[in-house]
Simulated scan of single mutants.
Amino acid sequence: MGITVNGIDIDDALIEQELPHHQQAANPLKQSVHEVVLRTVLLQEAERLAVPGEDDDARIEALLAREVKVPQANHEACLTYYGKHPRQFTRGELVEARHILFQVTPSVPLELVRETAEAVLAALKAEPGRFGELAAQYSNCSSGALGGSLGQLARGACVPEFDEVLFRLGAGELAGKLVETRFGLHIVEVVRRIEGVLLPFDAVRAQIADYLTTAAWQRGVHQYLQILVGRAQIEGIVLEGSQSPLVQ
């Protein structure tokens, strides 16, 4: 059975046209079908409400602008967000760090790599002064020749999971657990920290207001899509929620 939205068949050609836009998705075909169905629901609603537009994209934009209303973020909301996320508005923060990388490869079982890494981590907890020696012996990173040194790093310079650990550790602190990234398993130590400067609230207030207003609008659109999908007669597919790149 084909896919229909309120009795209207979804043309396979529309899905084929949409497919190239979702090649990075886990399931490009599924995401494309999902997107086409949502667009159809929105365009049918625009037709029902006689919302004008030069093309389909313009009609959808006009529909959302008309039907989804969110308040602008006020001073109190911005100040609360600023107080809860100081790191986001801190500039000049640096850490001097070192690591030992245990690279995961198809030829070596992950559990064997993990076992070795855990043993080295245990040895460092017992004798922290051996970091350089063990980095030179075990690290699969070129930094091993430098005792594992990565030099000074700014926030955001590394992959997120590594970055998060780096800027959580204090000076001279060794991460108590292995850090897993797409590169493998890491033993991480922060040698020194250079604290950054928190930007004043007035300098970032407009940025925070834009972020909070945009986030509220996206939540509003998501809720609106849920309402439209909930009352539409959709056959041939079950939509898992109504989140869509249309509204991001």
Rank of each mutant, 00 (worst) to 15 (best):
R219N: 12
G184R: 04
P200C: 10
D210P: 00
I187N: 05
G184C: 09
R193T: 14
P200Y: 12
Q218Y: 14
E180V: 09
A171D: 03
I208K: 10
A171H: 03
E173I: 10
Q223D: 15
V165Q: 13
Y211G: 03
D210R: 14
R168V: 01
G170W: 04
F183S: 13
V204K: 04
V165Y: 12
I208F: 12
P200V: 10
A175W: 13
R192I: 02
I227N: 09
G172W: 01
A209T: 02
H186M: 10
L212C: 11
A209F: 02
L178T: 02
R219Q: 15
R182H: 13
F167Q: 07
E161Q: 13
D210H: 08
G220L: 05
A206K: 12
D202S: 09
V188S: 07
I227W: 07
R192P: 02
I187Q: 01
E189D: 01
T213L: 00
P160T: 01
Q207H: 05
A157M: 13
A206G: 09
E173Q: 15
L185Q: 05
Q218A: 14
V197G: 04
T213R: 01
Y211D: 09
V179F: 09
G184P: 14
I187M: 05
P200W: 12
D210M: 06
A171R: 03
F162K: 00
I227C: 08
F201W: 06
L198W: 04
Y211R: 15
V221D: 07
D210Y: 00
Y211I: 04
